Simulated scan of single mutants.
Amino acid sequence: MITDEDWYARDVSGCTYDGEAFVDLDWTEVTGDGAVFRECTFAGVRFNASRYRGTAFTNCTFRRCTFFDTRFDDCKVVGSLFPQSTFTLLEVNGGDWSFVALAGADLRKASFTDVRMREADLTNVRLEQARLTGTDLSGAALRGAKLTGADLRGSELSSLDPLTVELTGAKIGLEQAAVIATNLGLRVT
């Protein structure tokens, strides 16, 4: 267990951690290229202004963590959980976030571009004014999601039930409109 340390601006590129617990650490401006974190626990860690490229956080738990101005490029975050974490100005480009649990997360104005989020738990998530473009949401749990004003263009929306989410002002493409109409039981001809 690593506790109460200041890792400000540390470079964790190429590091590998298995089953490690990181508790109450400051990871402000930490960078990581190709690092691997498997089944690690992060509790009370501040990821502010940190940047990760090609890093894997598989089956990790992020409890009460802060993600302010955090960026993930082509990262693998499969099966990770984010209970009681906060997100402000989160940016995710590419990568695989399948099976993540973000239920109830406040992701307003977050950006997910070309991300695989298959079977992600996005129940009751707040995504107002967020950008989810080119994102694969196949099988994602979206019940109660607030997508007001979100940009969903190019995303896979077949599991979206328009009767269980808030979509006012969301941006979608014509093919997506047909998918949503079909999900409402309409026949598109």
Rank of each mutant, 00 (worst) to 15 (best):
L122H: 14
T189W: 06
R46S: 14
L147K: 10
G94A: 09
D161P: 12
G134Q: 01
R63F: 12
F68S: 15
E128K: 03
Q129M: 04
A9P: 04
E91D: 08
R10E: 13
K76G: 15
D4P: 06
N93F: 04
F82W: 02
A49V: 06
F57W: 00
R153F: 00
T148C: 12
L157P: 04
R63A: 05
S138H: 12
G79Y: 04
L167F: 05
R143W: 10
N48V: 14
V188L: 12
R118G: 01
E39L: 03
T86S: 00
L81C: 01
G104F: 01
N124C: 12
V36H: 02
R153K: 05
D136Q: 09
T16D: 08
T164R: 09
L81A: 01
S13G: 03
T86V: 04
V36G: 08
S13V: 06
A178Q: 13
S80F: 00
P83R: 01
R51Y: 11
E128Q: 03
F87A: 01
D161A: 06
T182K: 14
T3P: 10
V92T: 05
D6K: 03
D26Q: 14
D96M: 02
G173F: 11
R108P: 01
V188Y: 05
Q129W: 05
A21G: 15
R10H: 12
D161C: 11
L107V: 00
V78T: 07
R116Y: 12
R153P: 01
R143C: 10
F67D: 11
G134S: 09
V188W: 08
R71M: 15
A101Q: 05
W27V: 14
F47C: 06
C60Q: 02
T133A: 06
G173Q: 10
R131D: 07
C40V: 06
Y52L: 03
R131T: 11
V115D: 09
K171T: 12
I180K: 15
E128R: 05
F82G: 01
D24S: 14
V188T: 13
G95V: 02
A35Y: 01
T70M: 10
M1N: 11
V78W: 03
F112S: 06
T16E: 13
V115F: 02
A9R: 05
G149I: 08
L142I: 10
V30F: 09
A120P: 06
T133N: 04
A177K: 15
T168G: 04
D24Q: 11
V23K: 13
G169I: 09
T55I: 00
T135S: 04
V115G: 09
A105D: 04
N124E: 11
Y8P: 08
L102A: 02
L167P: 06
W97T: 09
I180D: 15
L132D: 00
D74G: 10
Q129C: 01
R126N: 07
T168M: 05
G19Y: 05
Q84T: 02
F57K: 00
C60H: 04
T66H: 10
L89R: 00
F37V: 03
T41N: 10
T182V: 15
D6H: 07
T3W: 11
R10F: 09
V115Y: 11
L184R: 12
L163P: 09
L163W: 12
G154T: 09
F47G: 02
K146S: 08
G173Y: 08
G169Y: 04
R126M: 08
A181T: 15
T133V: 08
